[in-house]
Design a protein around this nucleic acid. Structure first.
Lengths: 202, 202
DNA sequence: CAAAAAGCAACGTACGATAGTTTGTGAGTT
DNA sequence: AACTCACAAACTATCGTACGTTGCTTTTTG
């Protein structure tokens, strides 16, 4: 019994299915604890067959981590551009997008925040570069708000870190089935971020 | 050549050395990626010799995670007791202790926050119970501050989460060699936490 | 006080399991 | 005929753990 009939979805979707299975398992079990055999089983393949679509286990992880950072950067960038042109409105948009993305893509983001160690130096550098870029984006926004509103920002870097930390944390507990609506949640975090700047709620 | 001369430190310290080596390696590489052979090499032992002191790899992790939660709970509890008896002062003391502990024990805390998945159900439940207790401690403090000061707390749970998230984040980047003094850092985070409550800086 | 017994802790080796990856083959598609 | 892709099997490496042995240290005993 040499093989199963080809899936009707065709072969082009297989690569994406593998990635999705990897995201799920990396999230649930961690990268190191996840075996490619487990990934293969999730997409109904044999282990070796994966290698028709991926270059190896770590490539799979690197792909996920790099593309999530790209998406995150793009999302926040777009949100900032679309906001009213005041520094505060742009900051609020960034924070809101940040939290929303971390809730909606909790699994990918969680992997991105916890599996840096498993990357080789090349890939780790790539991810860290994007991450630094992301941090700087928020840092600049905080400073602009301070400059434009005269807000008493205690420490811009800690301020930015604070927002990033909330996102990482959200990605570790948020479930769509929770009691609060996502919009309300995002609104709460925006208010907290604004308060932290020493500004009255808008 | 049957054996090396016994170390002058004696055997009583060995168990502690093993734990410290494990903390270091689990922090640097993650639990799954760390081999007991690596731990043994770190303390100049053969793999098998570890089993004179530990029951197994997971026991080592569980010990670390459980005792860090106990220490954390005790520390914050003590700090709260020692503070002035106003709700705000007690909350500030808790936040300060929380951040300080996460900076000073960054490695242990980081392990505690990232290796839950690697525990079996029994040990995971133990840790999760302590963690829930810790969260509740902050939640109660937030509510008391709100009741006592009339602060406009938007969402007590998110408020508590926010503080917890800052701690976890601090443990991922803080290094004693950094530019800011720990006291200053702790002070900054306390101010942010108070601002989040909608109160003016004290 | 000295000799014998008991315990402790490290040694080195081995085992069974599982990991990531490679490879040759062949069926299905274009 | 050329190409794609899944299969099954094998390979090498490494893992956690168990075991019997060895020698040092401490306690018990005569």
């Amino acid at each position: 019994m040499p093989r199963a009939t080809r899936l009707t979805t065709g072969g082009a979707r297989t690569r994406k299915s593998i990635r999705e299975a990897a995201v799920k398992l990396f999230y649930e079990q961690g990268y190191e604890a996840t075996s490619l055999r487990g990934v293969a089983a999730e997409v109904d393949l044999q282990v070796g067959s994966l290698y028709n679509h991926i270059n190896g286990k770590e490539d799979l992880l690197a792909d996920i981590m790099i593309s999530v950072m790209d998406e995150l950067l793009d999302s926040v960038h777009d949100a900032v551009e679309a906001a009213e042109p005041t520094a505060l409105a742009r900051y609020e948009a960034a924070v809101g997008c940040h939290i929303r993305y971390h809730a909606e893509h909790a699994q990918q983001v969680f992997i991105g925040n916890s599996e840096l160690r498993s990357l080789n130096e090349d890939n780790r550098t790539k991810v860290l570069t994007k991450r630094a870029e992301y941090e700087n984006l928020f840092l600049r926004l905080v400073k602009k708000v301070a400059a434009e509103t005269g807000a008493d920002v205690i420490d811009p870097k800690i301020q930015a870190y604070s927002v990033l930390a909330q996102g990482a944390h959200v990605s570790s507990w948020y479930r769509p089935s929770g009691p609060k609506s996502l919009d309300k949640l995002v609104g709460t975090y925006i208010k907290l971020a604004v308060r932290e700047l020493g500004l009255p709620a808008s």
